[in-house]
């Protein structure tokens, strides 16, 4: 019994990581209807960026991410403005294929620069610290921080979207691109800001990716799939739904792993397919589409 309760708790905490992966994807889709096949690779790229900043300046990863965030905001802004804005339109193919190409470029670029070796963000004692909950169950500090950060990111994104002028512009642009321009919204710029913001979320996701486990240049696509599954399970259009989706996925994986360690990933995918079969619009769909 304790074993399963432990699996559930660890699963919820893992869900925090997946919610962080998913929040960026959800933001991109929410504002510019962009489905970014390079999303996982961008998270890995950001992890390497944090690693580089940390080792260059001898910083703690938590400090390094603060330095990396403005850099990644600019990278995201420029990527959208220079490349991805050109792909958006009625045709689905260009954004999909361009981000697919980007995925291959990032993976292989990272392989060339950093080799295929596994890396990890080192944060000292906090990495192994845990809080005992009694009954033989303990939660790691880093997994707990991950979940809390996911919640903080979602609160922050909701604040931006629903309480600020730029958030109004995001939603207006998503509703009606043409009329948004009539309001004086420069959509190319708004999309670039959205991507910059998505990169900030990606940086935070990358921090916890690197703190919780090893990473190497090839693990991006799997992260894309987890992010995507969390978004679909949660239902499109709500950041809180994305958190719920991440948690469902995390719990499915942890419970699968308890049954047989080889089934962890498969169990997550199967949970996704079951949700898709039973509730194709996700668990918490937005009322209007």
């Amino acid at each position: 019994m304790t074993d399963w309760l432990d699996a559930l708790i660890q699963g919820v905490l893992l869900g925090g990581l997946y919610a962080l992966f998913a929040a960026g994807l959800s933001l991109m889709f929410g504002v510019m209807r962009l489905v970014n096949l390079a999303h996982g690779d961008l998270i890995v790229l950001a992890a390497f960026a944090i690693l580089t900043v940390a080792s260059t300046f001898g910083l703690d990863p938590f400090a390094a991410v603060v330095l990396a965030i403005p850099i990644l905001f600019v990278v995201g802004f420029v990527l959208q403005h220079v490349l991805l804005n050109r792909t958006l339109g009625r045709d689905l193919l260009p954004p999909l294929l361009v981000t697919f190409g980007l995925s291959i470029i990032i993976q292989n670029g990272l392989l060339q620069v950093f080799s295929a070796d596994s890396q990890r963000l080192r944060a000292g004692a906090i990495e192994t610290a845990s809080i005992p909950l009694g009954g033989g169950i303990a939660v790691g500090v880093v997994p707990l921080l991950t979940l809390m950060s996911a919640i903080a990111v979602i609160v922050f994104l909701n604040f931006i979207f629903y309480r600020t002028p730029v958030g109004r512009a995001f939603r207006a642009t998503s509703d009606d691109l043409e009329v948004a321009q009539l309001m004086g919204v420069d959509v190319n710029r708004i999309f670039a800001v959205a991507m910059g913001l998505a990169f900030v979320v990606i940086a935070i996701a990358a921090l916890y990716l690197g703190l919780r486990a090893n990473f190497d240049p090839t693990i991006g696509p799997a992260r894309l799939l987890y992010a995507f599954e969390a978004v679909i399970i949660g239902g499109l259009g709500s950041f809180w739904g994305t958190l719920a989706g991440g948690i469902v996925l995390g719990v499915a994986q942890t419970i699968g792993a308890r049954i047989d360690p080889e089934w962890q990933i498969l169990a997550g995918h199967l949970a996704f397919l079951v949700v898709l079969a039973v509730r194709p619009r996700g668990l918490f769909p937005r009322a209007q589409d």
Partner: peptide, 17 residues
């Protein structure tokens, strides 16, 4: 190897655009 794949990805993007 990796450079070749970077080239393929870039070519694909350039053609698409």
């Amino acid at each position: 190897g990796a450079s070749y794949l970077i080239l393929l990805g870039t070519l694909g993007i350039v053609i698409m655009l």
